[in-house]
């Protein structure tokens, strides 16, 4: 389930925010982007800064001259935009139908319990990634791995903990 929305008090220091996201501002200007390109700008900002905190969203809203609440509304609607920082290592278990039948639920439980308490490792699930021929599929730090088992998943978590 998408996690629920909670209020957070935040006083944006515009100078600091502009400095932090200057590269995004330049990119927007160079591409001549407008408010219709909000999705592309959010993709780019997350790719560069890892996730979208309120400073980032405030900056993007001002840069594209969009209401703050609209930008937050869009960022919080889509599953792939992250509003909170993730661990250095990310282990995503696909829970599409083919993977579900091949035991994805069991893999997700295994990953969660192996990674409990590890701040450096984030475990999550995602909708169908497409390589259903290789079900069940896990994405470890962006690398697509097919034919996973509880053992292979626990090794992935162990390797991630070891490396961070």
């Amino acid at each position: 389930m998408t996690d629920s929305i909670t209020n957070q008090s935040v006083a944006l220091d515009l100078g600091e925010v502009d400095a932090r996201f200057g590269s995004i501002g330049e990119w927007i200007a160079s591409q001549g982007l407008s408010n219709g390109d909000l999705m592309a700008v959010l993709h780019r900002t997350q790719a560069e800064f890892g996730y979208l905190d309120r400073g980032a969203l405030g900056f993007v809203a001002r840069a594209l001259r969009l209401p703050l609440s609209r930008v937050y509304g869009v960022a919080s609607f889509y599953h792939n935009f992250r509003l909170t920082p993730h661990g250095r290592h990310e282990i995503i278990v696909c829970t599409g139908t083919a993977c579900h039948i091949a035991g994805a639920t069991r893999l997700l439980e295994e990953a969660h319990c192996r990674a409990v308490g590890l701040k450096s490792v984030t475990v999550g699930s995602t909708r169908c990634l497409g390589p259903c021929g290789a079900a069940p599929v896990v994405v470890a730090d962006g690398e697509l791995l097919g034919g996973q088992t509880a053992e292979s998943v626990s090794e992935i978590v162990a390797r991630a903990r070891h490396e961070s």
């Binding site: 999705m39 592309a40 959010l42 609209r70 509304g73 609607f77 889509y78 599953h79 935009f81």
Partner: peptide, 24 residues
């Protein structure tokens, strides 16, 4: 135009709203 994880954007009017930079 790259989506960002919303099955509803397979529905044509939600897809259009997403391309226009809004919630699907």
């Amino acid at each position: 135009r790259v989506g960002a994880g919303a099955y509803v954007c397979g529905e044509e009017t939600a897809l259009i709203a997403s391309i226009e930079g809004g919630r699907g």
